[in-house]
Simulated assay, not measured.
Amino acid sequence: MIPFRKAEKRQVGFLTKEEIDALLDACTMKDPLGRRDRVMVLIL
């Protein structure tokens, strides 16, 4: 049997509301790729 690797578990980080708003503001709504990016950020 192969022993498990001993590694520390990292704590999952979260974005603040201000960081999420900055990501959404960076997406342009003028072209399809910008709309796609905005939808992906909203889903995540």
Rank of each mutant, 00 (worst) to 15 (best):
M1V: 02
C27V: 09
I43P: 00
R10V: 08
M29S: 12
E8C: 12
P3I: 04
E18R: 08
D25Y: 01
E18L: 01
K30E: 06
R5V: 10
L33V: 00
L24W: 07
V39Y: 09
D37G: 14
R38F: 02
E19F: 07
R10F: 11
R35L: 11
D21R: 02
K9T: 08
F4S: 06
D21N: 15
V39A: 14
D31W: 04
R5P: 02
I20M: 04
E18V: 09
L24H: 04
D37N: 14
I20T: 14
E8N: 13
D21V: 03
P3D: 05
I43E: 03
C27W: 13
R35T: 00
M29L: 13
F4V: 05
I43K: 15
G13S: 10
K17H: 15
A26N: 11
Q11N: 05
K9I: 11
G34E: 05
A26G: 06
M29I: 14
D21M: 07
V12A: 02
Q11T: 11
K9G: 10
R38T: 03
P32E: 13
K17P: 00
G13E: 14
G34M: 11
L33A: 02
T16F: 01
P32V: 15
D37K: 02
V41S: 02
L15N: 03
Q11R: 05
P3N: 00
M29V: 09
K6S: 12
K9C: 01
M29F: 15
D31M: 11
D21I: 00
E8M: 10
E18Q: 06
T28N: 15
L42P: 01
L33F: 07
K6N: 13
E8A: 12
I2E: 08
V41P: 04
P32R: 12
P3R: 11
C27H: 03
D31K: 08
Q11I: 14
F4T: 04
L15K: 08
K9L: 04
A26M: 07
M29H: 06
F4M: 00
K6M: 13
L23P: 01
E8Y: 10
T16K: 07
T28M: 15
D37H: 03
G34V: 05
A7F: 07
L15Y: 09
T16R: 11
D25L: 08
K9W: 00
L24K: 05
L24Q: 00
V12M: 10
V12Q: 09
D21Q: 10
A22V: 01
A7P: 02
I20A: 02
R36Q: 06
L42E: 13
D21A: 04
K30M: 14
L23V: 06
R38A: 00
V39S: 09
